[in-house]
Write a protein that binds this DNA or RNA. Structure first.
Lengths: 235, 235
DNA sequence: CCAAAAGTGTTGTGCCTACACCCATGG
DNA sequence: CCATGGGTGTAGGCACAACACTTTTGG
């Protein structure tokens, strides 16, 4: 560190931004965005986020902003990257620590009814024009998410507690953008011990044979989250 | 983002810190540290780094500080993580964006003669007590480096332009902390096309059969740096 | 009975692992 | 000639990729 004199002159503000991914059958994989009410970029869609308070951690700032702006509470949060180009905000020098979050599809309804700020989900393949450098940030987050599913489990945070095996298949396929072999996929996932078969059948909706319900094995899930696994060759 | 009023009140400073890894035969894998001359933590070893200037990028700040404090220029730099706990610096709230760098072993001599600040290399397995939360930062960097060598090439930045195959083997073994099978390792690396055999022999130093010299294939190296590879099963 | 979705096994192949002996040089 | 380090091949096993038909339900 150089001496403190240098520090005194520094005029940089710090924000956090959140890239929150959600998932459900109809909309696929979505990102939470808010419509800005203040300058700059008024009326444009942007990532939720805001200035860090002097005495809160970065994670606390993200969680606070998400509650304030969209009424969301998150069940997985991880630091993504810090964006710091001098001109990324037209007002003044702002560096933003971006966080990456996942929420359950069950929480979707909460947002629709939240009116604090206009907030909405957008499919990751069909995003509006974004304020600031937020397009770049979302891009980086999607790349990370796609890489992540090949080396650690993420379904738990996105799917309901009980789900069909085909839900998990489709989550992976929608994220990867291509088909995967159902038999190989199931064999691999089951051999990890990550998912257990319940002796419940799902209510048969529409035509087709009703499927069994599955859920994640919590302790195995945590263990694999820690140690990682390898689906590289599968998908 | 919340409104600008909130921003005005914010009192947070931004620094960068650098974890620079070097490598040579005698000292193994080392981290560059400096001895602090100012409060707090005077006379303690710490990572090089300092306050970001208002109009420079984060990367430029890292490079500037490394030159000022240790006379080092880096040939690979990547963002590691941002550390932001409110009390990580006793003076005031400071968040630090940590960068991870690699330099060639040939540059080692530069530092020994640089007197601007006391700077030195420490073997990663034998570090002194560090100021602030720098032990945690170094830890994270070592973990990242260890993971990195399993999915992208890093030897280029650490070894001389021409090297013995055993140099590469030893770099991997020292970093991983265990032996690897020489034949399997060579087969795998050569099959990637990452390394080419030169028709030069190394001068035979001490006893033993002199080895051939190798160098990295630049274009293949860049390509694999982009796309990654997989040595998981090997090492 | 037809459409839709769920469920389920086998075989070939290629890659990884494990393993040990000879060669070239300096002293 | 001995010590040191460099260089090299193979066989067996395992895990992955490719592949299609049957079952259960709703309409």
């Amino acid at each position: 560190m150089t001496n403190v004199t240098t520090a005194i002159k520094q005029n940089i503000k710090v924000t956090v931004d959140a890239i929150v991914f959600g998932y459900n059958q109809e909309n696929g994989i979505s990102v939470l965005l808010i419509k800005r009410k203040i300058e700059p970029y008024t009326q444009q869609w942007a990532l939720p986020g805001g200035f860090v308070l002097d005495d809160e951690t970065l994670e606390a700032a993200v969680e606070r902003e998400l509650k304030e702006e969209a009424g969301v509470s998150i069940n997985y949060l991880e630091q993504l990257f810090t964006f710091g180009k001098p001109d990324r905000d037209p007002r003044t020098r702002i560096i933003s620590v971006a966080y990456f979050g996942l929420v359950k599809s069950g929480d979707f309804s909460l947002f629709a009814s939240s009116d604090a700020v206009e907030a909405a989900w957008f499919n990751i393949y069909n995003l509006p024009t974004l304020a600031f450098d937020h397009a770049e940030i979302v891009n980086k987050a999607v790349t990370r998410l796609r890489a992540k599913i090949t080396y650690e489990p993420i379904g738990f945070e996105l799917l309901d507690r009980k789900f069909l095996f085909s839900d998990l298949e489709q989550l992976y396929m929608k994220l990867l953008g291509h088909d995967i072999d159902r038999r190989n996929f199931k064999r691999k996932i089951m051999s990890l011990g990550l998912v257990v078969e319940l002796d419940e059948k799902a209510p048969a909706i529409s035509a087709g044979r009703p499927g069994k319900l599955y859920s994640f094995d919590d302790s195995k899930y945590k263990q694999l989250k820690m140690n990682g696994f390898n689906l590289n060759n599968l998908i």
